[in-house]
Design a protein around this nucleic acid. Structure first.
Lengths: 298, 298
DNA sequence: ATTTATCCATTCATCCATGAATACCAGCCC
DNA sequence: GGGCTGGTATTCATGGATGAATGGATAAAT
């Protein structure tokens, strides 16, 4: 009746988007850090304010109605504008304190970053670090992370990326295993040993095939897509596997198998949103990462 | 510290925009229908969340800082998206009930619309009418009104407008005045009488001048920019003035002065946002206005 | 058939955001 | 200087939004 005067609360639109995205009140509540009853009320409030139903209440959750779908583009524009605001605000932040969110691959997060980040904390105690181990590619755009450390060249627009160098890969096994099963000396010898490889990681399998390995799922004696677990299998003496040179050299249990099979290298890229690049805080972490990674790269 | 997780409340951006626009917390509070302490808190909250000052606290109010100005474009995009949402939602509304906001010139609102709207209410009791007497030109875009009745051709994009016809203008005085001061018979005679005209309404003055009247502020014996008050001066017998034929003919106190001086006509336009045009509610009011205005037009 | 895991609606005590009231400050006009 | 009219900041009682808990319903899994 008279609610059209004070327009509608912008928070309701955010709730609408979250529910439309996740398809459920509970999911939206989790995403927004709220509670399911609150989300339910907000959606109902929005619907009565607009005088139309936006969702079908299904047993599995809430599904958009026609009317609801019509509002989606506008709501998304709103969200995009909100992101823009957050980005420019963060980019103009001065001072060396505040949170910085880093995303990096699981293995790098585990084996390389901790000492680097520890040193950084000593130099800039005001900076707090969120580390998100993940290989998902799209999380820089929506500011799920401020800085990404990736093993491939990021290609999104609006990102600034720098190639730090490459991580050398090698063939490794545990000393105990080699003592027991013997040390292969030629590439052919490798086939007498169990190989620790990957399951569904198409990328790595294809790379190996293109270099002459008969790499199929069946060829591997052990299969695990997680790089870190994979490496633990090597350390436990399950067989012969592939690993990062830096990680391997720091491990006294591990011995390199000196066969030249022309393995690829892993390119290491640093990336951030261009709006953030010159924020002092971000720049400091950026530099620390670039410097700290250097010893691990060729 | 950890507030960057749950992002920031979208309501704060609305508060930010309102304060930036109005230049004061109190002004923003008035616009948003809130209170000044609330606005103050919201701005402070936004500033601490972003870690930067957005406004200079001046004795006269709040002025944007550099950082604040940088956020303005994003905030405006957000507002625009919000308007889009409201428009599409309103455009998809079905059913013949709900509020419709009409804006029309003061004089038309006063003398012509009431009976039309009364009849409309009888036909569609579910529709409630907000009537905003105003000549401000820009209020359709931001949805301050759903339908505008204007005395000129609206030229905004995204608007659909229709020319209903023209209102004839004439020269009038009260019967009492003419009995007392005599009835002018030629255009020259007019100069012996006090003329009721306009003060700062450049448009009307220029129009009169282009038709051969020596219309300057000084030429008028009475000056008042409000059409309605201007007309009341005529009715009170202050002298000779200009008025709308329809209004004058309905008034037994008023007598037309039959001198042909080639007065202009007032074009009458109906306009609404194109997204609303086919909403049943809006369409109904639109038709009622078009039909109701017809007898007053030539 | 039973169990489990979803999800939504409802209730109710809690607590936080809200706004009326107030104090206070800086210009401005007389 | 005194009164007036804008403003902002602060306080404090209150009401409304919030979320934990609960109930109920449906689909998938055992």
């Amino acid at each position: 009746m008279d609610k059209s005067l004070s327009s509608l609360d912008w928070t309701l639109v955010r709730a609408f988007l979250a529910v439309a995205d996740t398809g459920s009140l509970s999911g939206a509540a989790r995403r927004l850090g709220g509670s399911q009853p609150t989300l339910g009320r907000q959606i109902r409030q929005l619907e009565t304010a607009l005088g139309q139903a936006l969702f079908h209440r299904r047993p599995k959750g809430l599904a958009l109605t026609e009317n609801g779908r019509a509002l989606l583009p506008g709501a998304q524009k709103m969200q995009a504008a909100m992101h823009e605001i957050e980005l420019t605000a963060a980019g103009r932040e001065t001072g060396l304190s505040g949170p910085v969110r880093i995303t990096a691959s699981e293995s790098v997060s585990l084996s390389i970053l901790p000492p680097i980040l520890a040193k950084l904390r000593l130099e800039a105690p005001g900076i707090s670090i969120d580390l998100v181990p993940s290989d998902s590619t799209e999380n820089l755009l929506f500011r799920e992370a401020d800085i990404a450390l990736r093993m491939y060249r990021p290609r999104q627009l609006e990102l600034v990326a720098r190639h730090l160098g490459d991580i050398r890969l090698g063939i490794y096994a545990s000393r105990a295993y080699l003592d027991r099963a013997g040390r292969p000396e030629t590439a052919l010898d490798l086939f007498d040993h169990p190989i620790i490889g990957y399951d569904r990681n198409e990328e790595i399998i294809r790379e190996l095939q293109s270099r002459g390995f008969p790499a199929t799922r069946e060829w591997f004696a052990f299969r695990c897509d997680s790089h870190t677990v994979n490496w633990e299998l090597v350390r436990a003496g399950c067989g012969i596997g592939f690993g990062q040179a830096g990680v391997a050299q720091a491990d006294p249990e591990i011995e390199e198998i000196p066969i030249d099979v022309n393995l690829p290298v892993l390119p290491v890229w640093l990336a951030t949103h261009q709006a953030l690049r010159h924020s002092p805080r971000i720049a400091m972490v950026w530099d620390a990462l670039a410097e700290g990674m250097a010893p691990h790269l060729v």
